[in-house]
Design a protein around this nucleic acid. Structure first.
Lengths: 260, 260
DNA sequence: ATTTACATTTCGGGG
DNA sequence: CCCCGAAGTGTAAAT
């Protein structure tokens, strides 16, 4: 008879509370990932305070000291702690888990009346996560090929610092006029327009010449349209997809440079 | 011998993929909460794109059609979908879960090579969640008793609408001067100061008289201090805790009105 | 350590 | 439905 492979996880089904407490202790010490499902109350106190009466929830405690309490619906946990918590377990009729986060001096208490099931293990996961086309990558694409915004546009300075922050793109257009570009990966709202206005004003004040202000984004929110018009600024469409194409092309070129 | 209580959850330990697929199908149809742990890859495509190679992860699918993929560390899931997904399962050597979200036209694919364990159930959770001292509650406290900000301050208008948005608090001080208050629950930064400045300018333009601008917050970020000074605005300390006291006091008063 | 800006932000409220 | 802004925002990069 073949042997059972070494258990990759420890599982308790409908455990008594002392048994659950013991396994929690051990798992926290070993920095395992723990999933606990059962009837629990939650109290949080820190930057704010919250309370949540009894109900069946799923709790995940990770080896980095982060905690999340999930209800039957909603993407976000109803209560949580970011990484870096000091975890402790106690038993006094109920099973209590305390996650204290020194960084913000905040405490999350979970009080279990019963545990349906509980699993602990150390997931093996060394893969690298890759996300494509962030706003930064869109900026790279624009710097790499300013013509994707308008023909004849040239880069003058990369991440130019002015009074309130950094300009995404600072250049000259085909007629030699200064251009300040405010780049947004998502639909641009009023806030983006006002931010651009401040950059334009700052550059205009320091150079003494007229400066074009351009919002580059996949589209505009409705309020932004009026704001642009009122402030004499422009919009040009630039999508993450288009930028991805430019970046892909550039990568291909780089490779081809090494070919005979 | 006491009977086992009706199973509150269905659990599979190290299932074969077809078995896992069948249970997933059933659970998705019943809108249960499902936890799957195993070796999986992830591909996301929608507002952005991402890919993540194989590794052991914990996946939670909720009855509302939200999905999250958790790695051994980090509070936030590495991949996810908010509620409202159409879920499908297929089997072709690997076990594939697809979560498609029509609202944003985005797709998350999870490809399991193996499943360590899997649990499905419908958590019973009807408790009400209460969060104390949000920014809105701080505003309520300030409206209820403006003197917590400064002696003699009176409310003129609640959520007054001006050009770019709503003023948190609009009133008159002890000397009859107009006061615009920008309220922040956390430390106020430069952004809050600039927002206030816009409101002050708008009110000043429409009334033609001088307007005081006050940032009310638990404290100031460093940059905000200078910005305040430069723009001729003021800061007054207001903490969530102080507001909680006012709200508590008001509640007590309300009750006492009904006492003989 | 603190500040700043981004996020596949999510989420709720109001028009 | 979209728009807007708060969040116990979390997170990483820059100062």
């Amino acid at each position: 008879m073949p042997q059972t492979p070494a258990a990759r996880y420890r599982l308790l089904t409908t455990p008594k509370l002392p048994e659950a407490a013991a396994q929690l202790q051990a798992s926290f010490r070993r920095r395992e990932l723990v999933i606990v499902a059962g009837d629990c109350q939650c109290r949080y106190s820190g930057r704010a305070s919250s309370s949540l009466g009894p109900g069946e929830r799923v709790v995940i405690v990770k080896g980095d000291g982060s905690v999340q309490v999930h209800r039957p619906a909603r993407y976000e946990p109803v209560n949580w702690q970011p990484p870096g918590c000091i975890l402790s377990v106690s038993l006094d009729g109920a099973l209590r888990i305390r996650a204290y986060r020194p960084k913000q001096n905040e405490t999350l208490d979970l009080i279990f009346e019963s545990v349906m099931f509980m699993v602990s293990f150390k997931p093996v996961d060394r893969a690298e996560f890759n996300l494509y086309v962030s706003e930064e990558q869109m900026r790279d694409a624009l710097v790499s090929d300013p013509s994707i915004l308008e023909a004849g546009l040239r880069l003058l300075e990369f991440e130019r610092k002015v009074e309130p922050g950094f300009i995404d793109f600072y250049g000259k257009d085909v007629d030699g006029r200064l251009v300040v570009v405010e780049l947004k990966r998502n639909l641009a709202g009023k806030d983006a327009v006002l931010q651009l206005k401040r950059y334009v004003d700052a550059v205009s004040a320091s150079t003494g010449v007229h400066v074009r202000g351009v919002v580059a984004a996949p589209g505009l929110r409705s309020g932004a349209q009026e704001a642009l018009a009122a402030l004499g600024l422009e919009f040009r469409k630039l999508t993450p997809r288009r930028c991805a194409e430019v970046l892909e092309r550039r990568k291909t070129r780089r490779i081809s440079e090494y070919l005979p």
